[in-house]
Amino acid sequence: MRIEGRVWLAGDNINTDLILPIQAYYLSVEEQPAWVFSANRPGWSDEVTPGDILVAGRNFGVGSSRPAARSLKNLGLACLLAESINGLFYRNAVNFAFPSLEAPGITGLFQEGETAEIDFDAAEINNPKRGERLTGTPMPPQLLRILKAGGIYPLLQSENLIR
């Protein structure tokens, strides 16, 4: 899987309340993405264009089990690259098919607005402008299969376990 897109930067400890605030929790799935980062970066969700890439610091997605990964996916982001990712967020990312990679050192590789080239399966990340690259932690094959199947729900649906 190859992904290429414009980079946005986020800091350390970006929590699920910033991604999917409680007010948005009651709205429809389609309305939720507009609320991403409304508390810490108002207006940002309007600037994101489909295919953009989010590059974050340590402990991305700490917080609740709410489907924050789904909001980032539905906002149009193609990929998350972070120094480290909260385990619960990571599960939701796999399960909602939002490509996410841990890549220690990633925050030093990009400035906002630069382009990232990613070989997702190999976790190879390239900044073509600087000619610098870095290899992150590849997603384990078992989880990559779920991601590529479109997440858990399509899988369970195909087995008639959910509707």
């Binding site: 619960l88 599960r91 729900y153």
Partner: peptide, 15 residues
Amino acid sequence: ARGVGSPDMAYAVTK
């Protein structure tokens, strides 16, 4: 014991 998302729960409850 760990917190998971709704899709994980659907998986655990059905499988």
